[in-house]
Write a protein that binds this DNA or RNA. Structure first.
Length: 298
DNA sequence: TACCAGGAAATCG
DNA sequence: CGATTTCATGGT
């Protein structure tokens, strides 16, 4: 992104000139599970083994409990600040009133660049579950098996557990985090990743090769594979199809099945499919598109 | 109480 | 091979 001004003041990192950026859109659009809104309107979260607090006042973003070095080396990429979302939004919503509305609603979404391993397990857990429960499960896992990071504003924070740690636990222990029938998926995948760090290479491979590898993991199907590639590997043509995307594509575009949806997304959104999907998901879930009669849309 | 949740594996026909 | 059933758990 052009013309970002970064400075440090009173222990805070202040970034000015941040466009197409809204914390609520970013953290509530379903891409991440470890960020929580605080009473001051900002969010506290764990990523990169660190806990930070972030708050926003229009185009000014304020980070607490971090440094300029970490901003430059970690958070700048994590928040995808090097990307011009104006171009993306304009391109995907060209001649498409539906997308225009979805983009307007989630105008400040940025696709976070998250850890492959954490996203893998998070979205294995996500299957057939609601987002609040997914967040709760991941908190259980982190508190039980994650490394203690430290205390911030009176709360203790734990990193997402390492693959080696989970690989060494039995299914029964993993199940104590209330992940249900997904426990054996987690346990087996943890062993795979602990022995074979290949997942961290996929970012540099083709989307086909990445998908092939991910689909070979126990408990990973098409939807979860696409979420992993989109949220942790910068494979932005990925187009995860979940219940909400199915609903919104049927309700607003008249598409009946996954095959039709994939062809439409590839044809219409191309390299920006993942961004389009995320605007649509956030819009659909926030407005209950497909769950209520179509006249209820805001 | 029955049904649903950012689905995928197992099983069926 | 595509279509259906099953799988834990918590919220509504």
């Amino acid at each position: 992104m052009e013309t970002l001004i970064v400075k440090e003041k009173d222990g805070l990192v202040i970034v000015e000139g941040v466009k197409d950026f809204d914390l609520t859109h970013i953290f509530e659009c379903g891409q991440c599970f470890r960020w929580n809104r605080e009473s001051d309107g900002g969010y506290t979260g764990v990523a990169h083994g660190k806990v930070i607090h972030i708050k926003q006042d229009n185009e000014r973003v304020i980070l607490e409990n971090t440094t300029i070095d970490d901003f430059n080396n970690l958070w700048y990429d994590y928040f995808d600040l090097d990307r011009d979302y104006g171009i993306i939004k304009k391109t995907i919503s060209n001649n498409d009133e539906i997308m225009q509305e979805a983009v307007k609603f989630g105008s400040g979404i940025r696709l976070l660049n998250q850890d492959e391993w954490e996203i893998l397990i998070s979205f294995i857990i996500s299957q057939n579950r609601s987002i609040p429960i997914i967040k709760q499960n991941i908190e259980f896992l982190s508190k039980q098996y994650g490394k203690y990071i430290g205390s911030f504003r009176g709360n203790d924070y734990y990193d997402f557990p390492a693959a080696e740690t989970l690989a060494a636990k039995s299914c029964e222990y993993i199940k104590s985090c209330k992940v249900g029938y997904r426990a054996p998926y987690i346990q087996k995948v943890a062993q795979t990743i602990a022995n074979d760090k290949f997942i961290f290479e996929l970012k540099n491979r083709s989307i086909t090769e990445a998908a092939d590898y991910l689909l070979g993991l126990f408990g990973v199907g098409p939807k979860v594979a696409h979420c992993i590639m989109l949220f942790s590997m910068k494979k932005y043509e990925s187009f995860p199809i979940d219940v909400w995307v199915q609903r919104v594509m049927k309700e607003l575009y008249g598409l009946e099945n996954a095959k039709q949806i994939n062809e439409f997304a590839k044809e219409k959104f191309g390299e920006y499919g993942g961004f389009a999907q995320q605007y649509l998901f956030y819009y659909a879930r926030s407005h209950n598109i497909g769950k209520t009669k179509s006249g209820d849309r805001v």
